[in-house]
Amino acid sequence: MTTTTKQKPGRTRSGETGSVRTLERGLSVLLALKDLRRAPLSVLARHVGLSASTTYRLLETLRQQGFVEWEEQSGVYSVGLRAYQVGLAFTERSNLIQSAHPEMEALVRDLNETVNLAVLYGAEAVYVHQVEGRQLMRMFARLGDSSPLHASGVGKVLLAWRPEADVRQKLGDGPYPAYTPRSISTYAALLGELEQVREQGYSVDDEERELGVRCVAVPVRDHTRQVVASLSVSAPTSRFTKDQIAGVAGRMNQAAVQVSTRLGWG
């Protein structure tokens, strides 16, 4: 007669723990490549805080599965086609992006500036879709890039309609990084800014993330009436004056209402 010991829920064997740790490290390498775009082994290893030998083994596994590509002549790694296919699957299933795209194209036609769509992910605003403007000098963020919640138009919109406890949990009590002299750096100032965003129905990044750049962002809601995304337009301050903010925000809110309606809001 043999006896077995029932494993408690939530417990893992040592081998399983090692496999999970390896997976976490592999994903960290893939995310580093997302940020760096192209990098040699030594740079990637420093970026993720792993030894070169460990990083190489992870990269080789990712390369064999098509998530990473390696250029033999230069020794540079980059994101592979399989990773793109995974991202494309998200895009295709996302009703948010499908609902927003026509209105984003209309905004570009009307405003002649690049329009971005961002969602909340942890303590950051992540750009998930973009329609570029036709200006020679365009302000745009790369898809998948993130912005700080306290110092971006999209970030402040994504925070403004959330409970104060949630805001504190995501950002803490401050002080927050000041990217320019105009950045919000204290918790009290942030709460005041978010109240203003709720009152006026849009947020403004007035050179808070980068000097010489102004941004307006508006909320997108779903069928539960929750803010699930933000539409934004950014442009050089020389082309986007303070006098234009209210008019641009009004046009963008018209677009956001259309997107929200497609998502079941109303």
Rank of each mutant, 00 (worst) to 15 (best):
N95S: 10
T114A: 01
N116M: 07
G212S: 02
L27N: 09
F240R: 03
Q226G: 10
G247Y: 03
Q130Y: 06
S74E: 02
P236N: 03
T261G: 06
V257G: 05
S183V: 02
R142K: 13
V76H: 05
N112C: 06
A45D: 02
L211E: 14
V213Y: 05
E72Y: 09
T241L: 14
A235I: 04
P163G: 09
H129Y: 12
G10I: 09
V68F: 02
G133V: 13
L149E: 01
G247D: 05
F90Q: 13
A189S: 10
V259N: 09
D243Q: 12
A123M: 08
S51N: 11
L41Q: 01
D35M: 09
V79E: 00
T237G: 11
L23R: 10
L231H: 01
N95G: 12
V128C: 08
G247H: 12
L171M: 11
P236C: 01
R168E: 14
P181S: 12
G10W: 06
E113Y: 13
I184E: 03
V29N: 06
R182T: 02
A256L: 07
L111Y: 07
Y127P: 03
R225T: 10
Y121C: 15
T17H: 11
Q98I: 04
D206I: 00
P148Y: 09
E132Y: 12
P40G: 07
Y187A: 05
V213F: 08
E60Y: 10
Q254M: 04
E113W: 07
A189E: 03
N95W: 06
R25Y: 09
S234L: 04
E24W: 08
Q226L: 12
P163H: 12
E124A: 13
E60M: 08
G66A: 09
T91Q: 13
H101E: 15
M137T: 14
G10K: 06
R214S: 01
R109Q: 15
F90N: 11
L117T: 03
V227A: 11
V68M: 02
R109D: 15
T54Y: 07
S183P: 02
E71H: 08
S232H: 11
A151N: 03
P219G: 01
P102T: 04
R239W: 03
L117E: 00
H150P: 03
A118Q: 14
V227T: 13
P40D: 10
V218D: 00
E195L: 09
A39N: 08
S203K: 04
A141T: 12
P181C: 13
G172N: 04
V20F: 14
L41Y: 02
E103D: 15
T17Y: 11
D35A: 13
K170I: 08
V228Q: 04
P236H: 00
